[in-house]
């Protein structure tokens, strides 16, 4: 019984940690610009695919990872500079559609360049699963959790201790006021996209040994990340992590105890329930509408 429950819990945590990492990327861009970046999943894909293809070309793993992250960062900047910045007076919905267009575009390029096959990435450490009270845990899950934790801490420090982080927060709270105190808001937005892309690509690289990677992996993982961010409360880093883990655990428990056919439906019902009682997610900030 316990072993069974633990197994579902571990599975849920593994899946959930993946969602949490992706949700963090959404949070960052949302904080800076109130845009839901539907291309977030593509950063994830870029991270995984670039690493795999570079290692296949003989580049050592560490360099491949660094190059892949840099590539994603450049892409994040490009996305903000070339697609988001020029659409100045656009509605938030219009911006969302732009990010959808961007994600289709990036995916299309990836498909042409890298092909359509799925690829394997080796576990960072051992392939041997870890046994705990009769349940098993993939060693890579610990990597996902660990790196997730590191990234959350780094983000918190970034926003509270660094000038750039504070500038991003200030911009998110009030763009005009931020500009008045001398913050270059466009620059800040660009940084937010870049950091978010970096986060996304790191997520893509750590989860690749569990999920495999391919040109279209970003669609569904990106979506689940958005869902996780919304449950947690858009804009909240803690919320993203809790939301991701909650979503993963609910999915795994539902698959184990209720019905594997309806596990996703159970997860989506949970979202409706959460939003019903907490219209701004678990940790969302209360915002007073300006009239």
């Amino acid at each position: 019984m316990l072993a069974e429950f633990l197994q579902y819990l571990f599975t849920g945590i593994t899946i959930g940690a993946t969602y949490a990492l992706i949700a963090l990327g959404f949070t960052l861009i949302y904080n800076a610009s109130h845009v839901i970046n539907f291309a977030q999943g593509e950063f994830l894909m870029i991270g995984g695919m670039a690493t795999v293809s570079l290692t296949a070309m003989g580049v050592p793993m560490v360099f491949a990872v660094v190059l892949a992250i840099i590539l994603a960062g450049v892409l994040g900047i490009a996305l903000q500079r070339l697609a988001i910045a020029p659409a100045k007076q656009a509605d938030v919905v219009t911006l969302i559609i732009i990010t959808i267009g961007a994600s289709i575009f990036i995916r299309g390029i990836a498909q042409v360049v890298w092909g359509k096959e799925y690829h394997v990435m080796q576990n960072f450490s051992t392939d041997q699963p870890i046994q705990v009270f009769g349940a098993v845990l993939n060693s890579q899950s610990l990597w996902v959790l660990g790196i997730g934790a590191v990234m959350v801490v780094a983000l918190v420090l970034f926003f509270t201790k660094t000038l750039i982080g504070k500038a991003i927060l200030a911009t998110s709270m009030n763009k005009e006021a931020a500009r008045l105190v001398g913050i270059r808001t466009q620059m800040v937005l660009m940084l937010a996209f870049m950091v978010s892309a970096l986060l996304g690509s790191v997520a893509g690289i750590v989860v690749a040994p569990i999920t495999f990677t391919s040109y279209d992996i970003g669609i569904i993982l990106g979506l689940k990340g958005f869902v996780a961010a919304a449950i947690g409360g858009l804009g909240s880093g803690v919320g993203a992590v809790v939301g991701g883990l909650a979503l993963g655990i609910v999915e795994a428990m539902a698959a184990g105890y209720i019905s594997s056919d309806y596990k996703d439906a159970v997860a989506f019902s949970m979202i409706l329930l959460v939003l019903f009682f907490m219209p701004r997610g678990l940790f969302g900030a209360k915002v007073v509408e300006r009239v």
Binding site: Q7, T11, A252, A255
Partner: peptide, 20 residues
């Protein structure tokens, strides 16, 4: 008799169900 959806990234829960 369990199922998973095409985009799932981990099927351990379903397999645990079968194992038990």
């Amino acid at each position: 008799d369990v199922t998973y959806s095409g985009s799932d990234t981990d099927m351990t829960a379903q397999l645990t169900n079968i194992r038990n």
